[in-house]
Amino acid sequence: MHDQLISRFLCGERAAFAELVEHYQRPVIAYFGRLGLSAAEADELAQEAFIRVWTNADRFDPGRASLATWLFSIVHHLAVNALNRADRRYCLPLDAAGEAIDDSPGPEVATQLAERKRILRNALRQLPTVDRSVLALSYFRELDLAAIARIEGCSEAAVKQRLYRARIALRRLLENRHD
């Protein structure tokens, strides 16, 4: 992100903040999606995260961390709380609620896509929370290994290990699903 935009946001400029939300909404929502949350939950949590970013802007120290790292620390915190509150994955509805509004492709493609999403989501929900979170963070290009380690509060080596474990487990789950 541009430093100028960040400092405008830190000075309390709403337009700058809107640009930041515009820029980060996709990665944040995608992160919640990869955690296996529903669209409604993701939307609610993402809103909450951005509102916290705005109200707690004075706690952000550009000298200490990048904005992405700080934002995702907040996002991660909210996500972990939400997952704990939902009493692990089993209480989450294992359906495809709210995801099929993808209206661009043709109907049968859409059904196929929705089916794949359902399979993937169910597989993700079976991963341990920490592994799932590392995996979900790893897809966002602005976060490197060190940043993920900070967000997760563990070492870089632990991040690598969790990532590896998550990929193996996910592949196995998806392959079993296919058969």
């Binding site: 120290d61 550009p62 000298g63 200490r64 961390a65 990048s66 060190a146 900070r150 509060g153």
Partner: peptide
């Protein structure tokens, strides 16, 4: 040092 590494991560 602080000038050269403004983005030093904060340790626990």
């Amino acid at each position: 040092d602080a000038r050269h590494r403004p983005r030093a991560p904060r340790q626990v």
